[in-house]
Simulated assay, not measured.
Amino acid sequence: MSIFGKIKSAIFGEKGPLGSGHFGTPKPEAVPAPAPAPQTTSAPAPIPQAAPAVTPVTAPAPQSVDVESVLSGIASRKNSDLNWRSSIVDLMKLLDLDSSLDNRKELATELGYTGAKDGSAEMNIWLHKAVMRELAKNGGTVPAGFAD
Score class of each variant (00 low, 15 high):
P56D: 02
S76V: 12
A108V: 05
A53R: 10
K15Q: 05
L18E: 10
V54H: 09
K27V: 11
S72T: 13
P62H: 03
E29P: 03
A108W: 05
P62D: 13
A61K: 15
P48E: 09
I74S: 05
G19D: 04
K93R: 13
K8W: 05
S64E: 11
P34L: 05
E29S: 12
L97V: 04
L82K: 03
V89F: 04
T55I: 14
P34S: 13
I11V: 12
S99V: 01
T114L: 14
V54L: 12
Y113R: 02
W84P: 03
T114W: 01
A121P: 14
T55R: 13
V70L: 07
S42L: 11
S76N: 10
L94V: 04
A51V: 11
G16Q: 01
L101K: 14
P36A: 10
D102S: 12
I11A: 00
D66G: 05
N83Q: 08
I11Y: 06
P62M: 07
P17S: 07
S64G: 03
G115H: 02
A10F: 00
T55Q: 14
P46R: 12
E68F: 02
P28T: 09
G13Q: 02
A37H: 02
D81F: 14
L94C: 03
A10E: 02
S120P: 15
N83W: 07
F23Q: 00
K78P: 02
L101E: 08
L82H: 00
K27Y: 08
K105V: 02
R85F: 07
T25K: 11
I74G: 01
T109M: 04
L71Y: 02
L94Q: 03
V67Y: 07
A45C: 06
A61H: 11
L71G: 08
K93P: 04
D102N: 13
A33T: 00
A45F: 06
S86P: 00
S72W: 08
P26K: 07
S20G: 13
A45N: 10
S9H: 04
S86V: 14
G73T: 06
K27M: 07
A51K: 09
S64K: 14
P36W: 00
L82G: 05
Q63G: 08
T55S: 09
T109A: 11
K78N: 08
P60R: 13
A35I: 09
T58L: 13
T25Q: 06
S69W: 01
D98A: 10
K27N: 06
S72P: 00
K15T: 12
G13H: 05
A43T: 06
Q49S: 08
G115F: 00
G21E: 11
G24D: 03
K8L: 15
D118T: 15
Q63R: 15
